[in-house]
Amino acid sequence: MSQQDEQAPRVVIRDRRRIDPTSGAVREPAGDQPAGPAAAQGEQMSEQNEGAAPVAEHTDVPAGDLGGEQVGDQGGETARQLAERTEDLQRVTAEYANYRRRVDRDRVLVVDQAAERFAGQLFPIVDDIERARDHGDLTGAFKVVADRVLGLLDGLGVESFGKPGDPFDPALHEAVLHDTSPEVTEPTATTVLRPGFRRGDRVLRTAMVGVTEPESPAPVAASPVAEQPAAAGQSDVAGQPDADPADR
Rank of each mutant, 00 (worst) to 15 (best):
G68N: 08
G42Y: 01
A56D: 04
L66R: 15
T59I: 06
P54L: 09
L66Q: 13
A56L: 04
P54Y: 05
P34I: 06
E69Q: 09
G31S: 14
A40V: 06
A63D: 00
V61S: 00
G31F: 11
D60W: 11
A35W: 14
V71R: 14
G67V: 01
A35L: 10
V55K: 10
S46I: 00
V61F: 02
H58K: 09
E47N: 07
A53E: 06
L66G: 07
N49M: 14
P34S: 07
D60I: 09
P34Q: 13
A38N: 04
E57W: 02
A52E: 15
E47W: 14
E50F: 04
E57H: 03
P54V: 08
A30R: 12
A39R: 14
P62A: 14
E50H: 04
G36P: 02
A63N: 00
D32A: 08
Q41N: 03
E57Q: 07
P37W: 11
V71W: 15
Q44N: 10
A53F: 08
G42F: 03
E43D: 15
G68I: 11
E47Q: 13
D65S: 01
G42E: 03
E47G: 03
G42H: 00
A40R: 10
Q70F: 14
A38Y: 00
A39T: 08
P37V: 07
Q33E: 13
P29W: 01
A53V: 06
A35G: 08
G42L: 05
G67F: 00
E57I: 05
P29K: 02
